[in-house]
C-alpha cells in the first residue's frame, strides 16, 4: 500500500471532519495503528482544525466548566456547602440560657447557704446542750451546797474536828454527824492527795476499850472536787479517825498511818 498516496488523497482530513462512513472510519483507525505516519498526519490535521475553530470562540470558556460541574454535581460530597439559616430570635435563646445558668447558680448558692445554716444550727444546738449541762451541773452543785448548808446549820448535827497526828500534824479534817439519819459528812479538805495504790479509810472508834470500826474507804478522794464525803454511820461513835491504807482497805487501822483523829464531845 502506498502510504503517501493514501495521505494525499485527502481522506484523513475528511476523517477528522467526521464525514466518512463507519467502514471508512474503521479502515483509517486500523491504518493509524499500523502506520505511524498516518497517525501523525491525523494528529496534525486535528491540531490545525482545533486551532482554527478555537480562534472563532471570542472568549475564555473556563467559567462554563463550573456551570457544567455544578449541573453534573461534581465533588458534590466535599464542595456542597449548605448555608445555615440564621435563627431569627437568637437573643431569645441566649437569654434563655443565661436565665437557666443564673437559676442554676442561685440554686447552688441557696443549697450551700442551707447547708451552712444547718451546720450552724447543729453547732448552736451542741452549744446549747453543753450550756444546759452546765446549768444542770450548777443546779446540782447548788442543791448539794444547799443540802450541805442545811446539814451544817442543823442544830442536831454534831461537829467533830479531827486534828493532825504525829508526822501528819499539819493535816486536818472535820466530821459532821447527824445522829437522826445516821449520816456522817466528812470534810477532808485538809488531807493531801492519797499516794498511788493507797486510799484513806475512815474509822469509828469507841474509847473504852479502844475499838475501831471501819466506815469504809474513800476511793474517790483524789477526783472529788469539794472533798466532802457522805458516809453512813450507825455506830455509837466516841471518836473518828482517818488512816492511809493499801487500796481496798484494811481490817484494822494502821496506826503509823493515822492522819487525823478527833473525839466526839460528850452529849449535851
Amino acid at each position: 500500500m502506498d502510504i503517501n498516496a493514501y495521505i494525499e488523497s485527502g481522506i484523513l482530513e475528511l476523517y477528522v471532519a467526521g464525514t466518512l462512513s463507519d467502514k471508512e472510519n474503521k479502515e483509517v483507525y486500523d491504518l493509524m495503528l499500523k502506520h505511524p505516519e498516518i497517525l501523525q498526519e491525523v494528529l496534525e490535521i486535528e491540531a490545525a482544525i482545533i486551532k482554527l475553530t478555537a480562534s472563532t470562540s471570542q472568549q475564555n470558556n473556563v467559567h462554563i466548566l463550573q456551570l457544567i460541574k455544578d449541573k453534573l454535581k461534581f465533588n458534590a460530597s466535599d464542595t456542597k456547602v449548605v448555608q445555615m439559616t440564621k435563627p431569627k430570635n437568637n437573643w431569645f435563646t441566649y437569654t434563655g440560657w443565661a436565665a437557666a445558668i443564673i437559676l442554676g447558680a442561685g440554686l447552688l448558692w441557696t443549697t450551700n447557704q442551707n447547708k451552712q445554716l444547718q451546720s450552724d444550727l447543729q453547732t448552736a444546738e451542741i452549744e446549747q446542750s453543753y450550756l444546759e449541762t452546765q446549768i444542770a451541773d450548777a443546779k446540782t452543785d447548788l442543791e448539794a451546797s444547799k443540802n450541805l448548808l442545811n446539814v451544817l446549820r442543823d442544830k442536831d448535827i454534831i461537829s467533830v474536828p479531827l486534828g493532825g497526828q504525829g508526822n501528819f500534824a499539819n493535816t486536818y479534817a472535820k466530821v459532821y454527824w447527824d445522829k437522826k439519819t445516821n449520816k456522817v459528812y466528812l470534810d477532808a479538805q485538809g488531807l493531801p492527795e492519797a499516794p498511788e495504790g493507797k486510799v484513806y479509810q475512815v474509822w469509828s472508834l469507841t474509847l473504852n476499850p479502844l475499838t475501831p470500826t471501819s466506815l469504809g474507804t474513800i476511793d474517790t478522794f483524789n477526783t472529788d472536787d469539794n472533798k466532802i464525803f457522805e458516809i453512813t454511820n450507825a455506830n455509837e461513835s466516841q471518836a473518828f479517825g482517818i488512816t492511809l491504807e493499801p487500796a481496798g482497805g484494811s481490817e484494822s487501822p494502821t496506826m503509823e498511818q493515822l492522819y487525823t483523829l478527833g473525839v466526839v464531845a460528850s452529849t449535851p
Binding site: 475553530t53 470562540s57 470558556n61 466548566l65
Partner: peptide
C-alpha cells in the same frame, strides 16, 4: 472527573468556536 476537566480544557474553546459560529 479530573479526566473530564482535562478534555474540557483541550476542546472547549474549539467547541465554543464552532457553536458560536
Amino acid at each position: 472527573e479530573k479526566a473530564f476537566e482535562s478534555l474540557y480544557a483541550m476542546y472547549s474553546d474549539s467547541m465554543h468556536g464552532v457553536i458560536y459560529n
